[in-house]
């Protein structure tokens, strides 16, 4: 555990909680892509199956349970409790264009051809692109609520911090994982355009709106 890893985890946790609280407090999931949230629930489910097979630490187990629990709670709020506020017409990204290629890639490029290992790889690849339906939705409506941009910033920052964590681990532990690194770079790059808008607009007190 190094400082980048810990702050990355906390940034990820902050993102998840911000989104849950935003929906709960406003009693609305307007502007939130339910499809991205289903993909994140799928990511956590396929990655954390090792909860049943191995124990790493109390921290590890607790965080996994919190992430999974929050992911399913978010999906429940969007598709059940506050379904009337869900903006399905603008959430029109075709997720099969992500899930099918990612599934194929995880079968082809993995560390070990075993069910758990393929599912872990699938979760890493899927996480890298799971935010696309949300970014697509924002580009379609041309705007995002400020609280939604805080969520996206924390979510993007998390993987960027993990990149520094992996650099740290390579130098101090001689340890790297090419699958995670390549997927993590892709994931972080997808946020770059958003990071730019966040710094130039939201942090200066303006609402995030895209030119028509």
């Amino acid at each position: 555990m190094n400082i980048f890893r810990l702050t990355g985890d906390l940034s990820h946790l902050a993102a998840i909680i911000i989104l849950l609280l935003k929906i709960w407090k406003s009693r609305s999931c307007a502007g939130i892509s339910g499809k991205s949230q289903i993909l994140f629930a799928l990511v956590f489910t396929t990655r954390y199956l090792d909860l049943f097979t191995s124990f790493i630490s109390l921290y590890n187990t607790c965080m996994k349970l919190i992430y999974i629990g929050c992911a399913y709670a978010t999906v429940y709020l969007i598709y059940a409790k506050f379904r009337a506020t869900y903006d399905g017409n603008h959430d029109s990204f075709r997720v099969e264009f992500l899930v099918v290629p990612v599934g194929g890639l995880s079968v082809l490029i993995n560390h070990d051809f075993s069910p758990l290992e393929i599912l872990w790889t699938f979760s890493i690849y899927l996480e890298s692109v799971a935010i696309l339906p949300q970014l697509f939705m924002i580009s379609k409506t041309g705007e995002a609520e400020t609280i939604t941009t805080h969520y996206l910033f924390c979510l993007g920052l998390y993987r960027a911090l993990y990149l520094f964590n992996w650099i740290w681990r390579f130098y101090f532990e001689g340890f790297f994982d090419m699958i995670a690194i390549v997927a993590g770079v892709v994931q972080t790059v997808l946020y770059c355009d958003f990071f730019y808008l966040y710094v130039t607009k939201v942090l200066k007190g303006k609402k995030l709106s895209l030119p028509a």
């Binding site: 090792d50 790297f176 994982d177």
Partner: peptide, 10 residues
């Protein structure tokens, strides 16, 4: 370096 899984990460 070793190319192995980051199973201790989240």
């Amino acid at each position: 370096g070793t190319d192995s899984n980051l199973k201790d990460e989240l």
